[in-house]
Design a protein around this nucleic acid. Structure first.
Length: 737
DNA sequence: ATTGTATGCAA
DNA sequence: TATTGCATACAAT
């Protein structure tokens, strides 16, 4: 008779400190649990005990850090799940008998997999799924019939599909190779596009299904090319905060995107590929599409490999959707998911499809104009340097400036001298070459990224179709790629001219509306600071009012410098200010910056209280929340590194504000889009730039669109301060903004 | 070819 | 040593 005796708390603690730190999707550290389970499984394998005792010492428990305490509890839960009825949990100890050692060890290993950083423990898990491919029309019809029968029985009887696509060499649009369906957990069916099975046919079948069935997929924005789901087809109303009958996702079939769901559950991750979802939610290892096919076209690839991959993917969506949804319910994010993110996905699809005209000849002319000056500057710079070199290379430039010309260096980067703009600006009085380099930099940025860069994205229809990504940012904002139309120059006149190449179609105009200081208004609302709220009700220039209050001067006597400083502090507050950061921004000393901040907090004490409150709250809960329930875990707050914890605090201050602004804009977009649809307007929503919306407006609709846009933006949320949007009309983006 | 670094554009 | 992003060029691998 051998018995295993373990000091429970030390056991987990030692495991925690004996290996690198890693955390799970919810930001909890789990290396302690993982290590403890690992040790236990190993011990059992070598020692063959017949029973085990885990001793609880209260004093030891109290001495643990919260993160380790949390892991102790997770560990106990895991052991309980493994041992079931053979375990007894008492005040001072946990005991269990070991009947079948092998069973327990394999159960421990399964638990370990849940906390594993690599998923390695899962490598033996396999798909138990029948998979086949068919292009027989009668059979395909029968399969869609069965899917319908199954799916319409209940709103949570999901039917999953996976669109097998591949990039084409010519256009941005992907080729559709086929569709995998999975609704019976034991079988997946792949339907390649061929003969009678056309893309249109598949779209029609999906469209029919969506009327009675909850469809599940991944990255649904791509699927909107094939079909418009029933819930958007005739929709003529905007966001509904309350579960009205028409928006009751609990009882009517709705599409579910596992990508968007997984993002909402944890927006901090970098990858949400099907393989990541398979691993995280199901403990299954699914190949990555790129690993499986690489550069091979699907036509060249092995047929079985293709349909098995597609079927497995659909299976993963089918099985993970209820788990993802359970998390959304747990976090009270179901409404955000169904009423904001899913409809938004459709809005974004429409915006991408519409695109925006960019005049390629004007872009070319603009680039040529820049090139003339760039060439001049190159000559001057080479002359001053005494040799030719690559000005775009920080390495070469650093050598020229700090070695050849002997300018005073601030060694700043990993690989050598910093030649960043703020460094060069300080150097400008030292040598005339510096100003030319700065000008060169500015111009070559405009030429390469904007003049030449944008021209490459103009498609056959003369328009640029950006991609709006809904699952990138940790705060809930949207991002734009290929090209990024959210960072078109604005601040300098020369850069701003680029906006003249963006024009509406013949006879149309742009209506461009942006929120006035939405983040600061949200801060006023969320902090409930009476001074800030009153300032906004006065309706005057907020930075001026702030300057007046902070510097104790009448509003009319605020100097431009005072206003500029107040504005910088206002911005800093939104970002989660540090005195160093503010001092950098204003080029003042840290002491002066601290002084400004103290004065600001005296003026708006509610803001300080709010910041302390959200930091404490995030530390306790481990995450931050927006007004609409968007969640961002902040594991940085528990990091042992001071700087990382400080970063966590700034994130805790910023995320609720930036995230709420994102929520409100998303609601506004849905409301604007479906109002346009309801009123049968020809005008189209085409761009979003965080706090700005652009509508390509039909000539006879200018008035109604302006009103609609402003109204919907201003009424997207009710705050304790007015939400103001300003709308401008123009015949190009330069003029409209 | 792919990846990391430095830089700079926007809200 | 201020929040969130993306594109570019260079240069190392």
């Amino acid at each position: 008779m051998s018995s295993l005796s373990i000091n429970l708390y030390e056991y987990v603690r030692d495991a925690f400190y004996s290996m690198p730190v890693f955390s799970d999707s919810e930001g909890r550290f789990v290396n302690g649990v993982y290590g403890a389970l690992f040790k236990l499984a190993n011990t059992m394998q070598t020692e063959v005990p017949e029973s085990a005792t885990l001793i609880k010492n209260k004093e030891t428990f109290e001495s643990l850090t919260p993160a380790v305490k949390e892991q102790v509890l997770l560990f106990i839960d895991a052991i309980k799940a493994v041992c079931g009825e053979e375990l007894s949990d008492q005040d001072e100890k946990i005991t269990f008998t070991i009947q079948n050692k092998d069973n327990i060890i394999s159960a421990l290993k399964e638990k370990m997999a849940l906390f594993s950083p690599t998923g390695k423990a899962n490598e033996n898990a396999t798909f138990t799924l029948m998979m086949r491919s068919t292009s027989d029309l009668n059979e395909v019809e029968a399969i869609f019939g069965k899917a319908l029968e199954y799916g319409k029985k209940a709103a949570n009887n999901y039917v999953a599909f996976y669109l097998m696509t591949e990039s084409t060499t010519s256009s941005k649009q992907k080729n559709i190779h086929g569709l995998a369906l999975c609704f019976d957990e034991s079988e997946g069916i792949y339907i390649p596009v061929e003969n009678f099975i056309t893309v249109d046919y598949l779209g029609k079948k999906l469209s029919e299904l969506s009327k009675q069935v909850s469809l599940v997929t991944f990255d649904i924005k791509e699927s909107f090319r094939l079909f418009t789901p029933n819930e958007f087809e005739k929709r003529d109303y905007g966001y509904t905060g309350e579960a009205e009958e028409q928006s009751d996702y609990k009882n009517v079939p709705r599409c579910f995107d596992t990508l968007i769901g997984a993002y909402l559950v944890n927006p901090n991750k970098n990858d949400y590929e099907p393989s990541d979802i398979a691993k995280e939610y199901l403990g299954l290892s699914l190949e990555k599409k790129s690993d499986l096919f690489g550069k091979k076209s699907l036509a060249e690839a092995d047929e079985k490999t293709v349909y098995e991959f597609a079927c497995k993917s659909a299976f993963v969506f089918l099985k993970s959707a209820p788990l993802i949804r359970k998390n959304l319910v747990k976090y009270q994010m179901e409404e955000l998911f169904y009423e904001v993110e899913m409809p938004l996905s459709y809005v974004l699809f429409s915006m991408e499809k519409e695109g925006i005209i960019a005049k390629s000849d004007e872009l070319k002319a603009y680039g040529d104009k820049l090139q003339v000056r760039i060439t001049e500057l190159e000559k001057k710079i080479y002359d001053a340097a005494g040799c030719e070199f690559n000005i775009n290379s920080p390495k070469q430039l650093g050598e020229i400036l700090f070695e050849r010309l002997g300018l005073p260096a601030e060694k700043k980067t990993k690989s050598g001298y910093s030649t960043a703009a703020d460094v060069l600006e300080k150097l400008a009085p030292e040598h005339k070459i510096v100003a030319d380099i700065l000008e060169y930099r500015g111009l070559s940025k405009l030429k390469s990224t904007y003049a030449d860069g944008l021209a490459n994205y103009i498609e056959e229809d003369g328009r640029i179709h950006t991609s709006f990504n809904q699952t990138i940012t940790a705060t809930g904002r949207i991002s734009s790629t290929e090209p990024n139309l959210q960072n078109i120059p604005m601040r300098t006149e020369l850069g701003r001219l680029i906006r003249k190449v963006f024009v509406p179609k013949d006879g149309y105009v742009f209506a461009d509306a942006d929120y006035s200081q939405i983040e600061l208004r949200i801060l006023a609302h969320m902090s409930e600071d009476q001074g800030l709220i009153d300032a906004y009700h006065e309706g005057k220039d907020i930075h001026g009012i702030t300057a007046s209050k902070v510097f104790h001067v009448p509003f009319e006597e605020v100097t431009p410098l005072q206003r500029r400083n107040a504005k910088a502090v206002n911005f800093g507050i939104v970002y989660g200010i540090s005195s160093f950061g503010l001092s950098q921004d204003l080029s003042i000393s840290v002491g002066e910056a601290k002084d400004y901040m103290n004065k600001y907090f005296e003026t708006y004490p509610g803001v300080k209280a709010y910041q302390d409150r959200v930091i404490l709250d995030a530390k306790q809960k481990g995450y931050s929340l927006t007004m609409f329930g968007r969640r961002r875990p902040i594991p940085e707050l528990k990091n042992s590194n001071f700087n990382i914890r400080q970063f966590g605090e700034r994130v805790a201050m910023n995320a609720p504000i930036q995230g709420t602004a994102a929520d409100i804009m998303k609601i506004a977009m849905i409301n604007v889009f479906f109002r346009i649809k309801k009123e049968n307007l020809k005008s189209k929503l085409i761009l979003q730039i965080h706090d700005e919306l652009v509508i390509e407006t039909a000539p006879d609709e200018t008035k109604i669109v302006t009103a609609l846009l402003t109204t919907e933006m201003e009424n997207a949320a009710k705050l304790s301060v007015p939400l103001v949007a300003e709308c401008h009309i123009g015949t190009d983006w330069y003029e409209a903004k």
